[in-house]
């Protein structure tokens, strides 16, 4: 096994052992540094990549809506690559943890996942839109 394969192998093993999903991992091979960034729960509105937030809930017993928001500034794409089918369409059923889009920021693709299960009611931004941090992306009617 060459160095790169060996490193990748070790990384996969490490990832399996982690207690929760990190938001970012930085590996450096020379002098062996490894930085893991955890979801930041201490800083107010900071959200890890799967960002879902309740909208102002209507109190008339209507559907409870949640919104998937941009966890970072970048370009929002609805599909994995140009011409590919979108991750989700309006009306689709989604489950928590499912990928619903991707944001490209500094040439890095970050999968956008929904934190709740339910029905996609509205896609709020078109494909390939530049979005800011916390921008609402997809509205989901929560299950149950």
């Amino acid at each position: 096994m060459n160095d790169a394969e060996n490193l990748a192998h070790q990384l996969v093993t490490l990832l399996r052992q982690l207690p929760e999903t990190p938001t970012r991992i930085r590996v450096q091979q020379g002098s062996n540094s490894l930085e893991v960034e955890w979801p930041d729960t201490a800083t107010g509105p900071a959200r890890p990549a799967p960002a879902t937030e309740a909208l102002d809930a209507p109190d008339d017993g209507a559907e409870r809506m949640e919104c998937v928001r941009a966890p970072m500034i970048g370009t929002f794409y609805r599909a994995a690559k140009p011409g590919a089918p979108p991750f989700v369409e309006e009306g689709a059923e989604v489950v928590a943890g499912q990928q619903v889009g991707v944001i490209e920021s500094m040439k890095l693709m970050t999968p956008i996942e929904t934190k709740c299960s339910g029905i996609v009611r509205r896609i709020l931004v078109p494909d390939a839109t530049s979005v800011e941090y916390d921008h609402p992306l997809i509205e989901i009617a929560m299950e149950g």
Binding site: D40, T43, P45, M72, I73, S105, E132, Y133, D134
Partner: peptide, 16 residues
């Protein structure tokens, strides 16, 4: 809007 309050996610966030 580049990020939340924590500076490492906003004013120190180079990619953003």
């Amino acid at each position: 809007h580049i990020g939340p309050a924590a500076i490492r996610h906003s004013y120190l966030n180079i990619p953003a």
